[in-house]
Amino acid sequence: MNWKIIFCFTLLSMLETSSSSKIYNVDPSGYVLYCPCMGRFGNQADHFLGSLAFAKALDRTLALPPWVEYRYGEPKSVQVPFTTYFKIEPLESFHKVMPMEDFMEQIAPTVWPPGNRTVFCYMPRGNPDSESCNAKEGNPFGPFWDTFDVDFNRSVFYGPLNYDVIHHNMGDAWRDKYSSEDYPVLAFTGAPASFPVQEENRRLHRYLEWSDDIDQRAEEFIRNALPKGAFIGIHLRNGPDWERACEHIDSTPSLFAAAQCLGYRNEYGRATQEMCLPSRETILQQTRKAIKDYSAKSIFVASDSDHMIDELKKEFKRMNVSVHRMPNPVPQVDLAILGRSNYFIANCISSFSAFAKRERDIKGIPSGFWAFPQKPQNIQNSSSRSDEL
Protein backbone atom coordinates (compact mmCIF):
# COMPACT_ATOMS: atom_id res chain seq x y z
CA MET A 1 0.00 0.00 0.00
CA ASN A 2 1.59 3.30 -1.08
CA TRP A 3 1.61 6.50 0.98
CA LYS A 4 -1.24 8.12 -1.00
CA ILE A 5 -3.60 5.28 -0.12
CA ILE A 6 -2.48 5.44 3.53
CA PHE A 7 -3.10 9.20 3.61
CA CYS A 8 -6.61 8.85 2.15
CA PHE A 9 -7.46 6.08 4.60
CA THR A 10 -6.21 8.17 7.54
CA LEU A 11 -8.14 11.24 6.37
CA LEU A 12 -11.34 9.20 6.04
CA SER A 13 -10.88 7.80 9.54
CA MET A 14 -10.45 11.33 10.93
CA LEU A 15 -13.64 12.51 9.28
CA GLU A 16 -15.58 9.60 10.74
CA THR A 17 -14.25 9.85 14.31
CA SER A 18 -13.37 13.49 14.92
CA SER A 19 -15.49 15.45 17.40
CA SER A 20 -15.69 18.34 14.92
CA SER A 21 -15.82 18.71 11.15
CA LYS A 22 -12.53 20.60 11.08
CA ILE A 23 -9.34 18.83 10.04
CA TYR A 24 -6.16 20.05 11.75
CA ASN A 25 -2.66 19.91 10.37
CA VAL A 26 0.25 18.98 12.62
CA ASP A 27 1.79 22.06 14.22
CA PRO A 28 5.60 21.80 13.89
CA SER A 29 5.91 24.15 16.88
CA GLY A 30 4.29 21.57 19.11
CA TYR A 31 1.41 21.38 21.58
CA VAL A 32 0.51 22.14 25.20
CA LEU A 33 -1.83 19.84 27.14
CA TYR A 34 -2.81 20.00 30.78
CA CYS A 35 -5.27 18.73 33.34
CA PRO A 36 -7.43 21.54 34.83
CA CYS A 37 -7.27 19.72 38.11
CA MET A 38 -7.41 22.54 40.68
CA GLY A 39 -10.75 23.68 42.02
CA ARG A 40 -14.03 24.24 40.27
CA PHE A 41 -15.04 26.37 37.31
CA GLY A 42 -13.84 29.76 38.58
CA ASN A 43 -10.37 28.45 39.41
CA GLN A 44 -10.15 26.53 36.14
CA ALA A 45 -11.05 29.67 34.19
CA ASP A 46 -8.26 31.63 35.92
CA HIS A 47 -5.84 28.86 35.03
CA PHE A 48 -7.09 28.71 31.46
CA LEU A 49 -6.22 32.35 30.79
CA GLY A 50 -2.69 31.81 32.10
CA SER A 51 -2.30 28.59 30.10
CA LEU A 52 -3.39 30.39 26.96
CA ALA A 53 -0.70 33.02 27.53
CA PHE A 54 1.87 30.30 28.23
CA ALA A 55 1.08 28.43 25.00
CA LYS A 56 1.30 31.63 22.98
CA ALA A 57 4.68 32.54 24.49
CA LEU A 58 5.99 29.12 23.45
CA ASP A 59 4.19 29.36 20.08
CA ARG A 60 2.63 25.94 20.67
CA THR A 61 -0.96 25.00 19.93
CA LEU A 62 -3.06 24.79 23.09
CA ALA A 63 -5.26 21.71 23.30
CA LEU A 64 -8.42 23.06 24.91
CA PRO A 65 -9.08 20.76 27.88
CA PRO A 66 -12.56 19.74 28.97
CA TRP A 67 -13.89 21.42 32.09
CA VAL A 68 -13.66 19.22 35.17
CA GLU A 69 -16.90 19.03 37.13
CA TYR A 70 -17.82 17.33 40.39
CA ARG A 71 -21.44 16.26 40.43
CA TYR A 72 -23.48 15.04 43.34
CA GLY A 73 -23.59 11.26 43.46
CA GLU A 74 -20.74 10.81 40.99
CA PRO A 75 -17.71 9.01 42.48
CA LYS A 76 -15.36 10.56 39.92
CA SER A 77 -15.04 13.86 38.14
CA VAL A 78 -16.97 14.43 34.92
CA GLN A 79 -15.17 15.97 31.96
CA VAL A 80 -17.27 18.41 29.90
CA PRO A 81 -15.92 19.38 26.43
CA PHE A 82 -14.58 22.92 26.26
CA THR A 83 -16.97 23.80 23.42
CA THR A 84 -20.02 23.01 25.57
CA TYR A 85 -19.53 26.38 27.24
CA PHE A 86 -17.36 28.46 24.90
CA LYS A 87 -16.77 29.22 21.24
CA ILE A 88 -13.44 28.39 19.63
CA GLU A 89 -13.35 31.06 16.92
CA PRO A 90 -12.66 34.06 19.21
CA LEU A 91 -9.77 32.17 20.81
CA GLU A 92 -8.36 31.35 17.37
CA SER A 93 -8.13 35.07 16.66
CA PHE A 94 -5.59 35.29 19.51
CA HIS A 95 -3.65 32.05 19.24
CA LYS A 96 -3.57 28.50 17.88
CA VAL A 97 -6.05 26.29 19.74
CA MET A 98 -7.95 23.08 19.13
CA PRO A 99 -10.30 20.93 21.23
CA MET A 100 -8.44 18.25 23.13
CA GLU A 101 -10.83 15.67 21.70
CA ASP A 102 -9.67 16.58 18.18
CA PHE A 103 -6.03 16.55 19.26
CA MET A 104 -6.35 13.02 20.59
CA GLU A 105 -8.20 11.80 17.51
CA GLN A 106 -6.30 13.58 14.77
CA ILE A 107 -2.85 14.53 16.04
CA ALA A 108 -1.86 12.28 18.94
CA PRO A 109 -1.58 9.05 16.90
CA THR A 110 1.20 10.69 14.90
CA VAL A 111 3.09 12.96 17.29
CA TRP A 112 2.14 11.46 20.70
CA PRO A 113 1.38 7.77 20.20
CA PRO A 114 0.65 5.34 23.05
CA GLY A 115 3.85 4.02 24.58
CA ASN A 116 5.68 7.28 23.96
CA ARG A 117 3.89 9.73 26.23
CA THR A 118 5.79 12.00 28.62
CA VAL A 119 4.23 14.06 31.39
CA PHE A 120 5.75 17.20 32.92
CA CYS A 121 5.69 18.36 36.53
CA TYR A 122 7.88 20.66 38.62
CA MET A 123 9.04 17.90 40.97
CA PRO A 124 8.00 14.35 41.92
CA ARG A 125 4.35 14.25 42.91
CA GLY A 126 3.01 12.06 45.68
CA ASN A 127 5.77 9.77 46.90
CA PRO A 128 9.00 11.79 46.53
CA ASP A 129 11.00 8.58 46.23
CA SER A 130 9.03 7.43 43.20
CA GLU A 131 10.78 9.79 40.75
CA SER A 132 7.47 10.17 38.97
CA CYS A 133 4.83 12.82 38.41
CA ASN A 134 2.19 10.21 39.30
CA ALA A 135 0.02 12.16 36.90
CA LYS A 136 -3.00 9.88 37.26
CA GLU A 137 -2.97 9.53 41.02
CA GLY A 138 -6.20 10.68 42.64
CA ASN A 139 -9.38 12.39 41.48
CA PRO A 140 -9.68 14.26 39.11
CA PHE A 141 -6.21 13.42 37.75
CA GLY A 142 -6.94 9.78 36.94
CA PRO A 143 -10.46 10.26 35.54
CA PHE A 144 -9.30 13.21 33.43
CA TRP A 145 -6.57 11.33 31.56
CA ASP A 146 -8.67 8.15 31.45
CA THR A 147 -11.26 10.12 29.47
CA PHE A 148 -8.73 10.06 26.63
CA ASP A 149 -7.21 6.63 27.39
CA VAL A 150 -3.88 8.28 28.21
CA ASP A 151 -1.15 6.49 30.14
CA PHE A 152 2.27 8.01 30.69
CA ASN A 153 5.56 6.20 30.15
CA ARG A 154 7.94 8.85 31.44
CA SER A 155 8.06 11.84 33.78
CA VAL A 156 10.08 15.02 33.28
CA PHE A 157 10.72 17.45 36.14
CA TYR A 158 10.98 20.91 34.64
CA GLY A 159 12.15 22.81 37.74
CA PRO A 160 13.57 25.40 38.10
CA LEU A 161 11.64 26.69 35.06
CA ASN A 162 8.25 28.28 35.76
CA TYR A 163 5.17 29.58 33.96
CA ASP A 164 5.75 33.32 34.28
CA VAL A 165 6.33 34.18 30.62
CA ILE A 166 5.49 37.85 31.22
CA HIS A 167 8.23 39.10 33.53
CA HIS A 168 11.07 36.84 32.45
CA ASN A 169 12.45 35.35 29.23
CA MET A 170 10.79 32.14 30.28
CA GLY A 171 9.34 31.39 26.86
CA ASP A 172 12.84 31.25 25.38
CA ALA A 173 14.03 29.11 28.27
CA TRP A 174 11.28 26.57 27.66
CA ARG A 175 11.97 26.47 23.93
CA ASP A 176 15.70 26.03 24.49
CA LYS A 177 15.35 23.21 27.02
CA TYR A 178 12.35 21.43 25.52
CA SER A 179 12.39 21.91 21.75
CA SER A 180 9.38 20.87 19.71
CA GLU A 181 11.62 18.47 17.77
CA ASP A 182 12.45 16.50 20.92
CA TYR A 183 9.22 17.21 22.79
CA PRO A 184 6.36 17.78 20.33
CA VAL A 185 3.90 17.63 23.24
CA LEU A 186 4.24 19.29 26.65
CA ALA A 187 1.62 17.55 28.79
CA PHE A 188 1.36 18.91 32.34
CA THR A 189 -0.11 17.33 35.46
CA GLY A 190 -1.79 20.67 36.19
CA ALA A 191 -2.29 23.99 34.44
CA PRO A 192 0.90 25.80 33.34
CA ALA A 193 -0.36 28.95 35.01
CA SER A 194 -0.63 30.70 38.36
CA PHE A 195 -3.69 31.21 40.53
CA PRO A 196 -5.22 33.70 40.70
CA VAL A 197 -4.78 34.79 37.11
CA GLN A 198 -1.89 37.20 36.61
CA GLU A 199 -2.97 40.80 36.26
CA GLU A 200 -1.55 41.03 32.74
CA ASN A 201 -3.60 38.02 31.59
CA ARG A 202 -6.98 39.32 32.72
CA ARG A 203 -7.35 41.00 29.32
CA LEU A 204 -7.40 37.59 27.61
CA HIS A 205 -10.92 37.11 28.93
CA ARG A 206 -12.12 39.04 25.87
CA TYR A 207 -11.48 35.90 23.82
CA LEU A 208 -13.78 33.79 26.02
CA GLU A 209 -17.23 33.98 24.45
CA TRP A 210 -20.12 31.85 25.62
CA SER A 211 -21.37 29.12 23.34
CA ASP A 212 -24.62 29.70 21.47
CA ASP A 213 -26.38 27.32 23.86
CA ILE A 214 -25.29 29.20 27.01
CA ASP A 215 -26.09 32.55 25.38
CA GLN A 216 -29.55 31.36 24.38
CA ARG A 217 -30.38 29.95 27.81
CA ALA A 218 -29.33 33.17 29.52
CA GLU A 219 -31.29 35.35 27.11
CA GLU A 220 -34.40 33.16 27.43
CA PHE A 221 -34.30 33.39 31.23
CA ILE A 222 -33.95 37.17 31.15
CA ARG A 223 -36.72 37.49 28.58
CA ASN A 224 -39.19 35.03 30.13
CA ALA A 225 -38.49 35.11 33.88
CA LEU A 226 -37.54 38.73 34.59
CA PRO A 227 -39.85 41.74 34.23
CA LYS A 228 -38.94 44.33 31.64
CA GLY A 229 -36.49 46.91 32.86
CA ALA A 230 -33.12 47.06 34.58
CA PHE A 231 -32.05 44.26 36.90
CA ILE A 232 -29.35 43.85 39.54
CA GLY A 233 -27.20 40.73 39.60
CA ILE A 234 -25.77 39.55 42.92
CA HIS A 235 -23.52 36.63 43.84
CA LEU A 236 -23.95 35.11 47.30
CA ARG A 237 -21.11 32.72 48.15
CA ASN A 238 -22.21 31.25 51.46
CA GLY A 239 -21.99 27.46 51.50
CA PRO A 240 -20.46 25.57 54.45
CA ASP A 241 -17.11 25.10 52.70
CA TRP A 242 -16.97 28.82 52.00
CA GLU A 243 -17.73 29.69 55.60
CA ARG A 244 -14.78 27.55 56.68
CA ALA A 245 -12.52 29.15 54.09
CA CYS A 246 -13.46 32.65 55.25
CA GLU A 247 -12.28 31.77 58.76
CA HIS A 248 -8.73 32.05 57.40
CA ILE A 249 -9.13 35.46 55.81
CA ASP A 250 -7.15 37.29 58.51
CA SER A 251 -4.09 35.09 58.03
CA THR A 252 -4.40 34.90 54.22
CA PRO A 253 -5.46 38.39 53.07
CA SER A 254 -4.75 37.49 49.43
CA LEU A 255 -7.10 34.50 49.58
CA PHE A 256 -8.44 33.20 46.27
CA ALA A 257 -9.46 36.09 43.95
CA ALA A 258 -9.02 38.94 46.47
CA ALA A 259 -6.64 40.73 44.11
CA GLN A 260 -9.55 41.64 41.83
CA CYS A 261 -10.60 44.38 44.24
CA LEU A 262 -7.67 44.73 46.66
CA GLY A 263 -4.93 44.78 44.04
CA TYR A 264 -2.13 42.30 43.50
CA ARG A 265 -0.06 43.92 46.23
CA ASN A 266 -2.99 44.67 48.55
CA GLU A 267 -2.61 48.31 47.56
CA TYR A 268 -6.34 48.98 47.87
CA GLY A 269 -6.98 47.44 51.26
CA ARG A 270 -6.97 44.24 53.21
CA ALA A 271 -9.47 41.39 52.99
CA THR A 272 -12.04 41.19 55.78
CA GLN A 273 -14.62 38.70 57.00
CA GLU A 274 -17.38 41.01 55.78
CA MET A 275 -15.98 40.99 52.26
CA CYS A 276 -15.67 37.21 52.26
CA LEU A 277 -18.97 36.39 53.95
CA PRO A 278 -21.13 39.55 53.94
CA SER A 279 -23.77 39.95 56.61
CA ARG A 280 -27.49 40.19 55.93
CA GLU A 281 -27.32 43.91 56.68
CA THR A 282 -24.56 44.50 54.13
CA ILE A 283 -26.36 42.51 51.45
CA LEU A 284 -29.66 44.31 51.92
CA GLN A 285 -28.08 47.75 52.21
CA GLN A 286 -25.94 47.49 49.08
CA THR A 287 -28.69 45.84 47.07
CA ARG A 288 -31.12 48.58 48.04
CA LYS A 289 -28.67 51.26 46.93
CA ALA A 290 -28.10 49.51 43.59
CA ILE A 291 -31.85 49.24 43.00
CA LYS A 292 -32.25 52.97 43.55
CA ASP A 293 -29.18 53.92 41.50
CA TYR A 294 -30.32 51.91 38.46
CA SER A 295 -34.11 52.11 38.90
CA ALA A 296 -34.06 48.32 38.83
CA LYS A 297 -37.23 46.27 38.54
CA SER A 298 -35.74 42.94 39.62
CA ILE A 299 -32.84 41.14 41.26
CA PHE A 300 -31.15 38.01 39.95
CA VAL A 301 -29.36 35.88 42.54
CA ALA A 302 -26.61 33.33 41.92
CA SER A 303 -25.46 31.29 44.90
CA ASP A 304 -23.74 28.04 45.82
CA SER A 305 -26.08 27.56 48.81
CA ASP A 306 -28.52 30.12 50.28
CA HIS A 307 -30.06 32.43 47.66
CA MET A 308 -31.90 34.41 50.39
CA ILE A 309 -34.93 34.60 48.09
CA ASP A 310 -37.57 34.95 50.83
CA GLU A 311 -35.60 37.59 52.73
CA LEU A 312 -34.93 39.60 49.61
CA LYS A 313 -38.56 39.40 48.48
CA LYS A 314 -39.79 40.57 51.86
CA GLU A 315 -37.27 43.41 52.03
CA PHE A 316 -37.98 44.84 48.58
CA LYS A 317 -41.68 44.09 48.23
CA ARG A 318 -42.66 47.70 48.89
CA MET A 319 -40.29 48.83 46.16
CA ASN A 320 -42.11 46.54 43.68
CA VAL A 321 -38.86 44.75 42.94
CA SER A 322 -39.07 41.03 42.19
CA VAL A 323 -36.37 38.50 43.12
CA HIS A 324 -35.33 35.60 40.90
CA ARG A 325 -33.01 32.61 40.63
CA MET A 326 -32.69 29.78 38.16
CA PRO A 327 -34.91 26.87 39.30
CA ASN A 328 -32.13 24.38 38.51
CA PRO A 329 -28.99 26.50 38.49
CA VAL A 330 -26.27 25.86 35.94
CA PRO A 331 -23.14 27.81 36.99
CA GLN A 332 -22.23 28.89 33.47
CA VAL A 333 -25.76 30.15 32.73
CA ASP A 334 -25.78 31.96 36.08
CA LEU A 335 -22.54 33.68 35.05
CA ALA A 336 -23.90 34.60 31.62
CA ILE A 337 -26.94 36.21 33.28
CA LEU A 338 -24.78 38.06 35.82
CA GLY A 339 -22.71 39.33 32.91
CA ARG A 340 -25.83 40.90 31.39
CA SER A 341 -27.17 42.61 34.52
CA ASN A 342 -27.28 46.39 34.66
CA TYR A 343 -25.19 46.29 37.81
CA PHE A 344 -23.41 43.38 39.47
CA ILE A 345 -22.42 43.01 43.12
CA ALA A 346 -19.62 40.48 43.39
CA ASN A 347 -17.82 38.64 46.15
CA CYS A 348 -14.29 40.02 46.02
CA ILE A 349 -12.74 36.78 47.30
CA SER A 350 -14.54 34.41 44.92
CA SER A 351 -13.05 33.31 41.59
CA PHE A 352 -16.62 32.60 40.42
CA SER A 353 -17.47 36.27 40.93
CA ALA A 354 -14.15 37.17 39.31
CA PHE A 355 -15.22 35.50 36.07
CA ALA A 356 -18.32 37.67 35.75
CA LYS A 357 -16.39 40.76 36.83
CA ARG A 358 -13.74 40.25 34.10
CA GLU A 359 -16.44 39.77 31.47
CA ARG A 360 -18.14 42.97 32.55
CA ASP A 361 -14.86 44.89 32.64
CA ILE A 362 -14.21 43.86 29.04
CA LYS A 363 -17.69 45.12 28.09
CA GLY A 364 -17.22 48.32 30.09
CA ILE A 365 -20.28 47.83 32.32
CA PRO A 366 -20.30 48.58 36.07
CA SER A 367 -19.75 46.20 38.98
CA GLY A 368 -19.14 46.47 42.70
CA PHE A 369 -18.16 44.26 45.63
CA TRP A 370 -19.71 43.41 48.97
CA ALA A 371 -18.23 45.54 51.79
CA PHE A 372 -15.76 47.27 49.47
CA PRO A 373 -14.28 49.86 49.20
CA GLN A 374 -13.32 50.14 52.80
CA LYS A 375 -11.73 52.80 54.97
CA PRO A 376 -7.99 53.38 54.38
CA GLN A 377 -5.69 51.38 56.63
CA ASN A 378 -2.10 50.29 56.87
CA ILE A 379 -1.52 47.35 54.58
CA GLN A 380 1.13 44.67 54.75
CA ASN A 381 1.87 42.89 51.50
CA SER A 382 1.10 39.21 51.34
CA SER A 383 1.83 36.72 48.60
CA SER A 384 -0.35 33.95 50.05
CA ARG A 385 -2.47 32.19 47.47
CA SER A 386 -4.91 29.32 47.83
CA ASP A 387 -7.36 27.23 45.84
CA GLU A 388 -10.98 28.34 46.13
CA LEU A 389 -13.04 25.44 47.36
Results as ranks from 00 to 15, higher is better:
residue 350 S to K: 01
residue 349 I to L: 14
residue 372 F to V: 10
residue 367 S to H: 13
residue 362 I to R: 11
residue 384 S to R: 12
residue 368 G to N: 07
residue 380 Q to V: 13
residue 384 S to D: 13
residue 355 F to H: 05
residue 374 Q to K: 08
residue 354 A to I: 03
residue 384 S to L: 14
residue 365 I to W: 01
residue 380 Q to D: 00
residue 379 I to F: 00
residue 367 S to D: 07
residue 351 S to T: 14
residue 385 R to M: 04
residue 361 D to Q: 13
residue 363 K to T: 10
residue 373 P to R: 03
residue 365 I to C: 03
residue 387 D to K: 10
residue 388 E to A: 11
residue 367 S to E: 06
residue 382 S to F: 00
residue 365 I to E: 07
residue 381 N to S: 07
residue 372 F to I: 08
residue 353 S to E: 01
residue 378 N to C: 11
residue 354 A to Y: 05
residue 352 F to S: 00
residue 370 W to L: 06
residue 388 E to F: 12
residue 374 Q to C: 05
residue 388 E to D: 06
residue 357 K to C: 00
residue 379 I to R: 09
residue 356 A to V: 12
residue 348 C to I: 04
residue 387 D to P: 00
residue 369 F to N: 13
residue 353 S to I: 04
residue 367 S to A: 09
residue 350 S to W: 01
residue 380 Q to I: 13
residue 363 K to P: 09
residue 370 W to T: 01
residue 381 N to A: 05
residue 366 P to I: 05
residue 376 P to D: 09
residue 351 S to Y: 02
residue 388 E to N: 07
residue 355 F to T: 08
residue 365 I to R: 10
residue 379 I to M: 06
residue 352 F to T: 01
residue 379 I to E: 01
residue 359 E to H: 12
residue 365 I to T: 15
residue 349 I to E: 02
residue 376 P to R: 08
residue 350 S to N: 03
residue 357 K to G: 00
residue 385 R to C: 07
residue 351 S to N: 10
residue 373 P to I: 07
residue 361 D to K: 03
residue 349 I to V: 15
residue 382 S to D: 04
residue 350 S to V: 03
residue 383 S to Q: 11
residue 359 E to F: 12
residue 385 R to Y: 10
residue 356 A to T: 12
residue 354 A to V: 01
residue 351 S to V: 05
residue 383 S to R: 11
residue 386 S to P: 02
residue 374 Q to A: 14
residue 352 F to A: 02
residue 375 K to T: 15
residue 365 I to N: 09
residue 376 P to H: 05
residue 379 I to T: 09
residue 365 I to A: 01
residue 385 R to W: 09
residue 348 C to S: 09
residue 375 K to I: 14
residue 377 Q to A: 14
residue 368 G to A: 14
residue 372 F to A: 08
residue 349 I to W: 13
